[in-house]
């Protein structure tokens, strides 16, 4: 099967994730949209790995997953801490540094 449908699917998922980051103001939903974008990139990696008959793309996807796990841990800790002090999970409310 040609890699094009997989790449189009990856593109769609990536842009939908980007739309979630732009449109949603709940920090958790925006964060999940970032995860969706990472997953879409992974799909492209795996598709290209198969297209080239080379496993390096799969290794890259694996490392992306590991880094995503680390990122989720730290990001959720930050969200929980902001919620504790500001009682809000909205990305608009964390604006103390704004002039």
């Amino acid at each position: 099967m040609s890699p094009t449908p997989y790449l189009v699917l990856a593109t769609l998922l990536f842009t939908i994730g980007g739309a979630g980051v732009l449109l949603r103001r709940n920090a958790l939903v925006a964060f999940m949209s970032v995860e969706l974008m990472l997953n879409a990139a992974n799909l492209a990696f795996v598709t290209f790995a198969r297209m080239h008959g080379n496993l390096d793309g799969q290794i890259m996807a694996f490392f992306v997953m590991v880094i995503a796990a680390a990122e989720v841990v730290v990001g959720l800790a930050i969200i929980v801490m902001i919620f504790r002090t500001r009682r809000s999970a909205s990305v608009d409310d964390a604006s103390l540094l704004k002039l």
């Binding site: 040609s2 094009t4 790449l7 593109t11 790995a49 198969r50 297209m51 008959g53 496993l55």
Partner: peptide
């Protein structure tokens, strides 16, 4: 992105049987 990926002339997948 869909136009780019749709128009790109991608070869048929080699498959990872040889690499693995």
């Amino acid at each position: 992105l869909v136009a780019v990926t749709g128009r790109a002339a991608l070869p048929d997948p080699v498959g990872t049987a040889q690499a693995a």
